[in-house]
Each structure stands twice: as C-alpha cells, then as structure tokens.
C-alpha cells in the first residue's frame, strides 16, 4: 500500500465519506497487523515496543505528514485503535482455541510471555464486556478502546474525542470500575 493512497483515503474519511472508512480500516489493518505480529512474535522481553509504538509507527509509515491535516490524524488514531482491538482479540482468541482444543476459554495474558504481561485480563472476555458497556455508555467504551487497545494516552484520547482531559479521566475511571466489576469471576 503506497503511503499516498492511505493519506488520500484518510482525507476522504475526514471529508465525511463513509465508505472510505472501510477502505481505511482494511489499509490500516494490514500494516498494524504486520507490526503487531512482529511484536507479538518477539521472544525476548527486553525489546519492548508498545501499542503506542505500533500505532504511531503505522501512522508515520502510512500517512504522508506533509499532506495530511490534524483532523486526519484524529481519524487515523480512532480507526487504528479499533483495528488494534480486533487484532489483539483475534490473536487472543486464536491462542485460546489452540491451547484449549478449539474452545475459546479463559486465556491468561501471561501465556503470551512478557508481551502480554498485564494483570491477567482475558481479552476475548473484555471485548464482549466492552460491547455491553457501549450499550450503557458509548463514549466510555470508545475511551477504553482508544486507551487500552490503542495504547493512546488519556490526553490523546481527549484530543481525539474533543472533550476535556478531565472528563476523559473521569469517564475512563468509571468505565474501568464497571469493567472490572463485570469481569471479576
């Protein structure tokens, strides 16, 4: 995918072209997937690169900065976070089904080695629960998507959503509280 193409698609998305969103998603998907895969396959834990790095790297790689505008950037990160969510959840699901003989059961993140060393959150379960959160409060679910899956900071999230960082912080804490409550066994 040539850089310029993605930049152009992104501009169409910013221009309000709804069909371009799908196009952008698939364009970004391939790149993010490659980056994330490379990351997930690294065996040694001392070469840390974060989701932040993956998403930013994809952005720098795909988008011609000189021709894209700031609002394009926001669209890009919003979509990138969505895509990262899909990649990571798919990855977790695949691992889960390999390990559990076809059933996507509880998957401890630590099984991914140092890469997935968080506090043992089941990504597949989190994904399902996030769908239910979206029914309660759409914006909170998006914040989780951007912040957790996209690796964006809360300030960046605030910027993308166009709300104050203070609000995002409060929303994030509430979303997290609810998710943890729902996810507790």
């Amino acid at each position: 995918m040539a850089d310029r193409d993605v930049t152009r698609i992104l501009q169409r998305v910013s221009g309000g072209n709804v069909s371009a969103v799908d196009e952008l998603t698939s364009a970004v998907y391939a790149e993010l997937r490659a980056l994330a895969q490379a990351y997930l396959q690294r065996e040694r834990p001392d070469h840390t690169l974060s989701a932040t790095a993956v998403v930013h790297e994809a952005y720098l790689k795909l988008i011609d900065q000189s021709r894209s505008e700031y609002r394009d950037r926001r669209h890009f990160f919003a979509i990138a976070a969505q895509v990262m969510r899909r990649i990571l959840v798919d990855h977790a699901r695949a691992r889960g089904s390999i390990k559990r003989g076809g059933r996507a059961e509880r998957l401890m993140l630590s099984e991914g080695g140092a890469v997935l060393d968080d506090a043992g959150v089941d990504l597949v379960e989190l994904d399902d629960t996030l769908v239910r959160l979206a029914q309660l409060n759409e914006r909170q679910a998006r914040i989780v998507e951007l912040h957790f899956f996209g690796g964006l900071t809360l300030d960046e999230v605030a910027d993308i959503l166009g709300v104050s960082p203070r609000t995002v912080d409060a929303e994030w804490r509430m979303a997290r509280w609810w998710l943890r409550r729902e996810l507790s066994p």
């Binding site: 974060s50 989701a51 790095a53 912040h147 957790f148 960082p165 998710l179």
Partner: peptide
C-alpha cells in the same frame, strides 16, 4: 491507585501528550 487495564496488551509508553 487502581491499575486495572492501565497497561494495554502491548504495553504503554509514557504519555507524550501529557
């Protein structure tokens, strides 16, 4: 000082924007 979900699946950098 809850840290639940603070670290994304691929880890997180310090926040440049903040």
């Amino acid at each position: 000082a809850a840290t639940f979900l603070d670290t994304p699946p691929l880890g997180r950098g310090l926040a440049a924007a903040s």
